[in-house]
Amino acid sequence: MRTFPLVGGPVELRGALDLERTQAGVMPRRLPAWTKEQYQDPSVYGVTVMPSGVRLVFRTDARELEFEVLTSTGQLDTDPQPRPTGMLELLVDGAHAGRRQAPMGNVVRMAGPGAAQRLVPGEPGTVRFAGLPSGMKNVELWLPQQTPTELVALRADGEVLAPLPDGRRRWVHHGSSISHCLEADGPTGTWPVVAASLGGVEVINLSQAGNDMLDPYVARTIRDMPAGLISLKAGINIVGLATFRLRTFGPAVHGFLDTIRDGHPDTPLLLMSPVSCPALEEDPGPTTMGPDGKITALGDPADVVRGALSLTVVREELARIVAARRARDPHLHYLDGRELLGPHEVDDLADGLHPTAAAYRRMGKRFAAHAFADDGPFR
């Protein structure tokens, strides 16, 4: 087995916009380095190093590959075991060739959400994929979407070459945890990856669990990166944390779109509203988890008439904004998120908010059927 460099060599890292040097190796991040100084909440950094949609891409004639990684997963003091590390998935010439549980590495212990953290250091672990087809082939290793993963080493029993240019259109997507898809059954089971595979495009997933807040640094990131297709899914975090009122929400959406259009004036851009969430359809946030383990709204429904946001209000406002802008922006489109997961499917929301793994795959198929149809926004 020969060791090949992960940086500065033939391997290409796709889906990440930054690489941090660590003591063990390199850590991919899904936002550029310059954005870090603008994070108001430390959770933003935490979700940008969760590599949803990040993969190593190269060509090889090897029959056996080894990947050495160091994961970091969380554990509440009340839980007997750390959270699952997720899956590493290998694709060969676009077809699934194996999946392995990511090895347990660092464990971050905490007394509860928002409490001080204690690091229990771990060691890198190795996953092996053997019995690969002979001859030169295109290989993608997809990292677990929910677990920060430091890349330590790549070893192969053959040659490793740079990938050929990817002629597919690049689709850049930004959303919340429901686009980050921590609950998916693997990195290729997130709904954006499912949709991208069906649509024949390359996806870059900039979604941030709990932090889809129309942050200007995200808009500037999208503005400045190559993109042939763009989609934005907005609203659930804003309602769930009660971060905007109606008076400020509309201008923030306009500003986000204006910034993106500064760099992509004619790129197809699909603005999506939230999927169904019974607790927030008519009631405003903030939210908490009820004794039944499901999300519940704490806001006063009577406050909606005074400008508090519910999902119903958000959908109406997003549809209104797109309709008003389309006169001068015909490449802007709107999709009601309930077309991906509707009120008749709320049993697929285990905690009243996040879809199941099967529901994520169904959402990907529905998005592809809509967006990539002959008359769809991404046709």
Rank of each mutant, 00 (worst) to 15 (best):
L6C: 10
G9V: 06
P10I: 05
E12F: 04
G15S: 04
D18E: 15
R21E: 14
G25L: 13
V26K: 05
L31H: 01
A33R: 15
Q38L: 15
G46V: 12
G46L: 14
P51A: 09
V54G: 01
T60V: 00
R63S: 10
F67L: 14
T71K: 12
T73W: 12
G74L: 13
P82K: 09
M87T: 11
L88G: 05
E89N: 09
G98Y: 11
M104T: 14
G105C: 10
V108M: 15
G112L: 09
A115K: 12
A115Q: 15
V120I: 14
P124S: 08
F129K: 02
G131M: 12
L132P: 04
S134E: 13
G135P: 02
K137R: 08
W142T: 01
Q145L: 05
T147Y: 11
P163D: 02
W171D: 01
H174P: 03
I178K: 12
L182S: 14
A184W: 08
G189V: 02
G189I: 01
V194T: 05
A195G: 11
L198H: 02
A219Y: 03
D224I: 00
L229P: 00
L232K: 01
L232W: 01
K233A: 11
A234V: 15
A242L: 07
R245Q: 15
R245K: 13
V253L: 13
D258R: 12
T267K: 01
P268V: 09
L271C: 11
M272T: 09
S273C: 13
P278Y: 05
L280P: 06
E282W: 07
D283E: 12
P284D: 07
D292S: 11
G293Q: 02
K294S: 02
D300G: 13
P301D: 12
V304E: 10
T312I: 15
E317F: 10
L318V: 09
A323P: 04
R325L: 04
R326G: 10
A327Y: 11
D336H: 12
R338A: 15
R338T: 12
L349Y: 05
D351Q: 08
L353I: 12
H354N: 06
H354C: 06
T356F: 03
R361Y: 08
M363N: 04
M363K: 07
G364H: 03
A369S: 06
A373G: 08
P377C: 04
